[in-house]
Amino acid sequence: MGKLAVFCGSATPEDPRYMTLARDVGGELARRGIGVVYGGGKLGLMGALAEGALAEGGEVIGVIPEAMVNREVANQNCTELRVVSTMHQRKAQFTELADGFLTLPGGVGTMDELWEAISWAQLGYHSKPVGLLNAFDFYNGLLAFTRHMVDTGFIRPVHERILIAEHELDLLLERMEAYEPHQPIFRMKPGEL
C-alpha cells in the first residue's frame, strides 16, 4: 500500500485523544512510507492527520472542493493540494489515487466516504482494502449495526469481510495489506444475488 485515502472528521472534539490519534496515525503512516490522501482541510482531525504525516516527512495529497478553499479551510502545507469542483470528484480522486481506505473517527462526511468505499468494493468498482480504526471503541455501534445487516441478510456473506476493523493501527494495516478481494456483485450470476 503506497498511499491510503484517510477519512476522518474536520471537527475538533473536546476529548484531546482524537486529535492525538489523528496526528499519531499520520506520523506512523509516513514512517512506514505510506502516503496520505485526504480531504485537504487544515481543521480538526484532518489537519492533525496531515500535520503528523508532514512532520515525519511523509507525502500528503489533499483533495478539496473549491467551495471549501473559498472558506479558507484548505491546508496549503500539503505536498500537493488538488482543488476539485464537487464532493463526487473528491471521492473519485480518493479511489483513483489510493491503494486502500483507512477510516478514523469522524461524523457524517466520514460516514459518507466510508460507506461509499464499501459500496463500491461490494459492487466491483474497486478491489482495495477498506479499514476502520475503532480507537476508543468509537465505532462499536456501527460495527454492531453492520453485524445486524449481515445477520438479517442485507449484506451477503461473501461481502461481510470487506470492512476490516481493528482497535490497533498495526494490526489493521497488517490485515489491510493481506486483504484478498471478494467476489463483486458485477461478477455474480443472477442465482447468487
Results as ranks from 00 to 15, higher is better:
residue 18 Y to E: 02
residue 18 Y to K: 06
residue 19 M to D: 02
residue 19 M to E: 09
residue 21 L to W: 03
residue 22 A to V: 04
residue 22 A to W: 01
residue 22 A to R: 01
residue 23 R to V: 07
residue 23 R to H: 14
residue 24 D to Q: 07
residue 24 D to P: 00
residue 25 V to Y: 08
residue 25 V to E: 01
residue 25 V to C: 00
residue 26 G to C: 04
residue 26 G to S: 06
residue 26 G to H: 07
residue 26 G to E: 05
residue 26 G to T: 08
residue 27 G to V: 07
residue 27 G to F: 05
residue 28 E to M: 01
residue 30 A to G: 01
residue 30 A to H: 00
residue 31 R to I: 09
residue 32 R to V: 03
residue 32 R to A: 00
residue 34 I to R: 04
residue 34 I to V: 11
residue 34 I to K: 03
residue 35 G to C: 07
residue 36 V to L: 02
residue 36 V to A: 01
residue 37 V to S: 06
residue 37 V to T: 08
residue 38 Y to M: 03
residue 38 Y to L: 05
residue 39 G to A: 10
residue 40 G to Y: 07
residue 40 G to D: 14
residue 41 G to W: 00
residue 41 G to A: 13
residue 42 K to P: 03
residue 43 L to V: 07
residue 43 L to I: 09
residue 44 G to L: 04
residue 44 G to I: 01
residue 46 M to T: 02
residue 47 G to H: 10
residue 47 G to A: 09
residue 50 A to Q: 09
residue 50 A to R: 10
residue 51 E to P: 06
residue 52 G to Y: 14
residue 52 G to Q: 06
residue 52 G to H: 13
residue 52 G to F: 14
residue 53 A to C: 09
residue 54 L to Q: 10
residue 54 L to D: 02
residue 55 A to I: 02
residue 56 E to A: 06
residue 56 E to D: 04
residue 56 E to R: 12
residue 57 G to K: 09
residue 57 G to F: 08
residue 57 G to T: 05
residue 58 G to K: 04
residue 59 E to T: 07
residue 59 E to Y: 01
residue 59 E to V: 03
residue 60 V to R: 00
residue 60 V to A: 00
residue 60 V to I: 05
residue 61 I to T: 10
residue 61 I to S: 05
residue 61 I to F: 07
residue 62 G to M: 12
residue 62 G to F: 14
residue 62 G to R: 12
residue 63 V to P: 06
residue 64 I to M: 10
residue 64 I to L: 11
residue 66 E to I: 14
residue 66 E to G: 10
residue 67 A to I: 14
residue 69 V to E: 14
residue 70 N to Y: 08
residue 71 R to N: 10
residue 71 R to D: 14
residue 72 E to N: 13
residue 72 E to R: 13
residue 73 V to P: 02
residue 73 V to W: 08
residue 76 Q to D: 15
residue 76 Q to G: 05
residue 77 N to F: 11
residue 77 N to R: 15
residue 77 N to Y: 12
residue 77 N to K: 15
residue 77 N to I: 09
residue 78 C to A: 15
residue 79 T to F: 11
residue 79 T to Y: 09
residue 79 T to G: 14
residue 80 E to Y: 11
residue 80 E to D: 15
residue 80 E to K: 15
residue 81 L to S: 13
residue 81 L to K: 15
residue 81 L to Y: 15
residue 82 R to T: 06
residue 82 R to I: 14
residue 82 R to V: 09
residue 83 V to A: 11
residue 83 V to T: 15
residue 85 S to P: 05
residue 85 S to F: 02
residue 85 S to N: 10
residue 85 S to V: 11
residue 85 S to R: 13
residue 86 T to I: 12
residue 86 T to N: 11
residue 87 M to E: 06
residue 87 M to F: 14
residue 88 H to K: 04
residue 88 H to C: 06
residue 89 Q to G: 10
residue 89 Q to T: 09
residue 89 Q to H: 14
residue 90 R to H: 06
residue 91 K to Q: 08
residue 92 A to D: 07
residue 92 A to G: 03
residue 93 Q to L: 13
residue 93 Q to P: 03
residue 94 F to D: 02
residue 97 L to Y: 12
residue 97 L to W: 13
residue 99 D to Q: 02
residue 99 D to H: 08
residue 99 D to V: 04
residue 99 D to W: 11
residue 99 D to K: 09
residue 101 F to G: 05
residue 101 F to Q: 04
residue 101 F to N: 04
residue 101 F to P: 04
residue 102 L to Y: 04
residue 102 L to G: 08
